[in-house]
């Protein structure tokens, strides 16, 4: 079968894609990793974190939502774009309370892994130290708002995969946060231990209870290979 393809350029490399694909999808298939946090393979594009910002014909776009186009020129690994990504990650760190040293997601955390990949040693912006709580009222799941980066993966997973509506955003601007669909908190929702939503949280915010540190240091997701390695490995195989 003769599929219609488009050809475009990413950092000087020619990539072929199907016209309905986003830049990120096409790059993933070609083994070119574009950093991202809110984007997730099993969820529809959302475009909120902007970590996947690339320049398309000179204009900043979110690679997770921007469709490919014949002949477009995409810049991703340039110094300028990488610095934009570092700034976003920096801001996410200081805007919440991310204490990697005891966080059970450490080693499996995409925010932490992204910081390592981008070479961030310490945030350059001042910490905001917001006062945020924990909702541990559910017997099997908990939310730690200190670590939430507002990527909406939990909200989207609950809707698109779990077939529920357990989470949603409330508030605007700096007051925006993920809320549960019950005034009684998590225990009042239909969230369940079999839900995929906690598994898809990129940070240690929505978590299954009592997993803790069951995976030893050295065997965690990003202990040996940086985030994005799975995609980049396609390039060599």
């Amino acid at each position: 079968m003769n599929e219609k393809t488009v050809t475009f350029i990413v950092d000087g490399k020619e990539i072929k894609a199907r016209p309905e694909q986003t830049i990120m999808k096409a790059c993933d298939e070609a083994g070119v990793y574009i950093p991202r946090l809110c984007a997730f393979k099993d969820l529809s594009p959302f475009g909120s974190c902007r970590v996947c910002t690339v320049k398309v014909n000179g204009r900043p776009q979110a690679a997770c939502t921007q469709p490919v186009g014949e002949g477009i020129v995409v810049e991703s690994q340039t110094a300028e774009i990488q610095q934009i990504r570092r700034n976003i990650i920096d801001m996410l760190f200081v805007e919440g309370n991310h204490f990697c040293m005891f966080c059970e997601k450490s080693g499996n955390c995409e925010l932490q892994a992204m910081a390592y990949r981008l070479g961030i040693l310490a945030p350059k912006f001042p910490y905001m130290f917001p006062v945020r709580g924990v909702d541990a009222s559910h017997p099997d799941i908990f939310i730690d708002w200190n670590r939430c980066i507002l990527c909406a993966r939990c909200i989207r997973t609950s809707c698109e995969i779990d077939g529920k509506n357990a989470y949603g955003f409330i508030g605007r601007g700096p007051h925006k946060r993920v809320a549960t669909n019950s005034s009684a908190g998590l225990k009042g929702t239909d969230a369940d231990v079999s839900d995929k939503a906690p598994a898809n949280c990129p940070v240690g915010s929505l978590m299954y209870k009592r997993i803790g540190y069951a995976v030893p240091i050295g065997c965690r997701l990003y202990d040996k290979n940086p985030i994005g390695s799975d995609i980049e490995m396609k390039k060599t195989t």
Binding site: F102, E104, V134, A136, F142, K209, G212, Y213
Partner: peptide, 13 residues
Amino acid sequence: GRLYWEVPVMVQR
């Protein structure tokens, strides 16, 4: 307020 399984890792700090 922290979860009990975090404690052994947290307090060693």
